[in-house]
Design a protein around this nucleic acid. Structure first.
Length: 274
DNA sequence: AAAAGGCCCTGGTCGC
DNA sequence: TGCGACCAGGGCCTTT
């Protein structure tokens, strides 16, 4: 389940191998992702030069001459780089898409659950319907307590669900929503409109700090991106509350509770989070 | 308008 | 050991 830190780690992993290269070929083995992969990419992309690889929310943006390739990894997607002359480049069952580069390297997308996406946008990529309504990046100054406060006056939705709303802030998935609320000592059930500036300040700091640390941890696994399974090595990190139903709170020893909010599992410590 | 629920999909886990 | 039921999850889309 790639969250923002994982996507950013993947971006940093692939960028050096793509930037400045020309696309030599495209292979679509299974176009049926979240949306169909446009078949015309097989003809359109070869010959184009890759200028840079950026990220917006959890979307990877491969900026080419003439357009931008938009990748989303869904919840089971991963990218791998196979270098030229490497013996075992046989695609496996869920390797749906290859981007072949002019030096023979291959960027291969694997996505067993096919919630991911490969799309193409000409012109300003930020005008794409999937990107145009996104809220601020969590690690920018634009994401702050005042923004949360202003956007939630009169809002009755619970804070956990709000935090996962990409129109409010992008890149906070289920795991980090739970973990950041614990860090900020905020009960996930509280209505967003009843939270004041001081608690929002704690929440913003928690989001920034936890995401920043996760990205740093991912950096140490960057070398694994070439000729590996594409999975950063920090997935087995320790969580304070996520997935710890019934276990003792690492802070107070109380019991971690699990509830459902907007069809998603929420985990929290009723004693620490009020 | 806001909020709630549905849906896409596969692999892993669990009970029988 | 096989098999069905169920769950997880991002996030757009539809319904209320």
């Amino acid at each position: 389940m790639p969250e923002l830190p994982e996507v950013e780690t993947m971006r940093r992993g692939i960028a050096p191998y793509l930037t400045g290269h020309r696309i030599a070929g495209v292979v679509i083995r299974n176009a049926k992702l979240r949306w169909p992969i446009p078949e015309h990419l097989v003809k359109t992309l070869p010959g184009l030069e890759i200028h840079r690889v950026t990220r917006r929310a959890k979307y990877l943006l491969i900026d080419c001459s003439g357009g931008t390739l938009i990748l989303h990894l869904g919840m089971s997607g991963s990218l791998r780089l196979l270098m030229a002359m490497q013996p075992s480049t046989l695609p496996e069952k869920h390797d749906h898409f290859d981007l072949v580069l002019d030096d023979g390297a291959i960027m291969r997308l694997k996505d067993p659950r096919r919630f991911g996406a490969v799309l193409w946008q000409t012109g300003d990529v930020m005008c794409h319907p999937l990107l145009v309504n996104l809220g601020p990046e969590p690690l920018t100054a634009e994401f702050n307590e005042k923004l949360l406060y202003d956007k939630t006056r009169g809002c009755r939705v619970n804070i956990k669900t709000l935090l996962m709303n990409s129109q409010i802030v992008v890149g906070v998935g289920n795991i980090y929503a739970n973990e950041t609320l614990f860090r900020a000592r905020i009960n996930p059930k509280i209505a967003a409109g009843r939270i004041g500036l001081s608690r929002y300040k704690r929440l913003v700091l928690a989001v920034k700090d936890i995401l920043t640390r996760a990205i740093k941890a991912g950096g140490s696994s960057l070398r694994d991106f070439v000729n590996s399974d594409g999975k950063p090595g920090y997935f087995q990190q320790q969580y304070w509350v996520y997935g710890r139903t019934g276990q003792p709170c690492r802070q107070c020893g109380g019991t971690i509770k699990q509830i459902k909010q907007a069809q998603r599992s929420s985990f929290y410590c009723p004693k620490c989070q009020r």
